[in-house]
């Protein structure tokens, strides 16, 4: 263990090159990214993972800083995004986890993956359903976040209407199948699940060229 960790530190100290312990070819093979794109994303990962603690791992504070330009403050969306990236549930996002999660956001990723990711994002309590209380909590969060106020009456109307459309079996919660049917009817709800930037990461992070191991 110590030897591996030590080698990883050596890898960082001796050169800014891509850590040899990350299997770029496998990551590229298992994702919509080419090897050069994975290398370019490694440049982004390095930047994000050293913004507060320089340990080549993305901590929740670093994710918050990247997305909201502030390292502090609680937010249920941030918690869910972090949890979904952190596949191993060890409190940090590793490079492989970063690539896995970003793969879902690639413009060419299958829509089923985007639908599934969004469902897991909104299933705050991870019960396998999006429940009314969860939707109320998320709406309250966005209203607070954006300093918007809505009357309780209007808020309930919006949530009632949403459930009337999405909850086809009227059991008060949205199943994954209901969610799928609902977003296929309202595809703009998946807008956040696609990052056009991911089609052009080698241009966004051209410094990968100094560290590349292959020529795509």
């Amino acid at each position: 263990f110590f030897s591996t960790v030590g080698q990883c530190f050596d890898c960082r100290q001796n050169s800014p090159r891509t850590c040899q312990y990350v299997d770029l070819a496998r990551l590229a093979h298992d994702s919509p990214f080419s090897v050069n794109e994975v290398e370019a994303l490694y440049e982004l990962f390095k930047k994000l993972s050293c913004s507060i603690i320089d340990d080549m791992l993305i901590h929740k504070e670093e994710l918050r800083l990247a997305l909201f330009q502030a390292p502090y403050g609680e937010n249920i969306f941030l918690d869910r995004v972090f949890d979904l990236f952190d596949e191993k549930k060890n409190g940090v996002i590793e490079f492989e986890e970063f690539i896995h999660a970003l793969s879902v956001f690639h413009p060419n990723a299958p829509i089923e993956e985007k639908i599934d990711f969004a469902f897991r994002l909104y299933d705050l309590r991870q019960t396998g359903f999006i429940e009314r209380e969860e939707v109320q909590q998320m709406v309250a969060t966005i209203l607070m976040e954006s300093d918007m106020t809505l009357s309780d009456e209007l808020l309930n109307l919006i949530i009632d209407k949403t459930f009337a459309d999405a909850d086809s079996d009227k059991d008060g919660k949205i199943s994954k199948a209901e969610w799928k049917a609902y977003v296929l009817k309202h595809p703009s709800l998946l807008k956040n699940m696609t990052l056009p930037y991911l089609k052009d990461v080698t241009t966004a992070f051209p410094s990968f060229i100094f560290n590349t191991e292959v020529e795509d």
């Binding site: 998320m138 709406v139 949403t162 309202h186 709800l189």
Partner: peptide
């Protein structure tokens, strides 16, 4: 019918406005 209409307001459209759900922040620093 069947496609998004700008007149439809639903809870998930509101929720999707959260800046924490917009991962383009990664690329805009």
């Amino acid at each position: 019918k069947g496609s998004d209409s700008p007149t439809i307001i639903n809870a998930f459209q509101l929720i999707g406005m959260s800046s924490f759900l917009d991962l383009s922040g990664f690329f805009e620093q």
